[in-house]
C-alpha cells in the first residue's frame, strides 16, 4: 500500500465507524479542497452513496463560483444538501464588509453562530430539492449531534492536538488538555446525554496529500484553485473580503503538487492568505474554542 492508500483506508474506516455509532450525523462541506476530498472519501466508504446530509454555512460572502460548484455537484452526486445562514446579521448589515465588525467578530457571527444554530436546528435550514432543483425550507429541526469535519493536523497549532473523535459539551467547549485516549482504532463512542461529537477523518493528511489524492482520483475542485492566466490562484478558499489569492502560475493539479514539493510554498503555511488567522494572534484557538471548524 502506498501512503495515499493508507490515508484513504484510515479515513474510510473512521467514516464508517462514525456512521455506525451516531445518529443525526452530518458532514460539513465548506466547498474547499479538503472537505471535497472528505466528501469523496464518504462516497468511497459508502460505495458511491453519502448517507448523511452535507451542511454548508453560507456567509453570503463566498466567492460566487463556490456556490455554483456546490449546487452542481450536489445535483450530480444526489447529495442531501443543506445550508444555513445568519440572515439577521446580513439583513442588519452587522458584518466586516459592512464596516460594522472586525474580521474575527464577523467570522464568529457569519460562521460560528450560523453553524451552531444550523446544527441545533434553532435557525432555518434550507434543503436542496432534487426535483425542483432549488433550495426549500427544511422541515426537519432535529439537532445534528455528530459533525464530520475535514480539519487536518498540519494546518495550524490547535488542530494538531485534535483526536479523530472529539467530544464537545453543549457549549461546544473543547478541553484540549483532558481529551479521551485514542488507541488501536478504538474511538470514544460513548457519551453522556447532551455531548456533541466531532469526527476528523482527515487528521493525518497534509496539504500535499490532499492534492496528490485529488490528482489520483480525479476529483473535481473549484477552478479558483488554479491560475486562470492572471498569475494568481487561491491556495485556501473562504469569504472574498478576507481571502486573498497567492502569486502562482500553477494551472492544474500537477503544477500545484510540484509547487508544494519544491517551489516557493514548500515552507510557507497554507492559511497565510487568511486574514482572520492573523487577527486571532495566530493559532485560531479563540475561534476554535467558540466552535469554529
Amino acid at each position: 500500500m502506498d501512503h495515499l492508500e493508507k490515508l484513504e483506508s484510515q479515513s474510510v474506516y473512521i467514516l464508517r465507524e462514525g456512521y455506525s455509532q451516531f445518529k443525526n450525523l452530518v458532514m460539513l462541506w465548506s466547498i474547499g479542497k479538503d472537505s471535497t476530498v472528505l466528501l469523496w472519501l464518504a462516497r468511497k466508504a459508502f460505495f458511491g452513496h453519502v448517507p448523511f446530509p452535507l451542511v454548508h454555512i453560507d456567509t453570503a460572502y463566498k466567492i460566487p463560483e463556490m456556490i455554483q460548484y456546490r449546487d452542481q455537484l450536489a445535483l450530480e452526486w444526489h447529495l442531501n444538501m443543506v445550508y444555513g445562514q445568519n440572515t439577521e446579521a446580513l439583513k442588519n448589515k452587522q458584518t466586516f464588509p459592512d464596516g460594522a465588525l472586525d474580521r474575527i467578530s464577523c467570522c464568529k457571527t457569519l460562521k460560528t453562530d450560523a453553524l451552531r444554530n444550523t446544527l441545533s436546528g434553532a435557525w432555518p435550514r434550507y434543503r436542496l430539492d432534487h426535483v425542483q432543483k432549488k433550495y426549500v425550507l427544511d422541515e426537519n429541526k432535529e439537532p445534528y449531534t455528530g459533525v464530520i469535519v475535514g480539519v487536518r493536523a498540519d494546518e495550524e497549532g490547535s488542530r494538531s492536538k485534535e483526536r479523530y473523535f472529539s467530544p464537545r459539551d453543549k457549549r461546544n467547549d473543547w478541553n484540549v488538555g483532558d481529551q479521551p485516549p485514542e488507541l488501536w482504532n478504538q474511538f470514544k463512542t460513548d457519551f453522556a446525554p447532551g455531548t456533541h461529537i466531532r469526527i476528523h477523518p482527515l487528521l493525518d493528511w497534509t496539504e500535499l496529500n490532499i492534492w496528490e489524492y485529488i490528482g489520483r482520483e480525479n476529483i473535481p475542485v473549484v477552478p479558483l484553485y488554479f491560475d486562470q492566466g492572471k498569475g494568481e490562484r487561491y491556495r485556501s478558499l473562504g469569504c472574498f473580503p478576507c481571502t486573498f489569492p497567492v502569486k502562482s502560475t500553477a494551472k492544474n493539479v500537477e503544477d500545484i503538487i510540484t509547487e508544494l514539493k519544491t517551489g516557493k510554498f514548500s515552507n510557507i503555511a497554507e492559511r497565510a492568505g487568511r486574514a482572520q488567522d492573523k487577527e486571532d494572534g495566530g493559532g485560531l484557538e479563540t475561534l476554535r474554542r467558540e466552535g469554529y471548524m
Binding site: 495550524e156 497549532g157 494538531s160 492536538k161 510557507i268 503555511a269 497565510a272 495566530g282 493559532g283
Partner: peptide, 12 residues
C-alpha cells in the same frame, strides 16, 4: 512560529 503560520506543533 506556528502562530505566524508555520505548522509545527510540539506534539508532532
Amino acid at each position: 512560529e506556528q502562530s505566524q503560520g508555520i505548522t509545527i506543533d510540539t506534539a508532532r
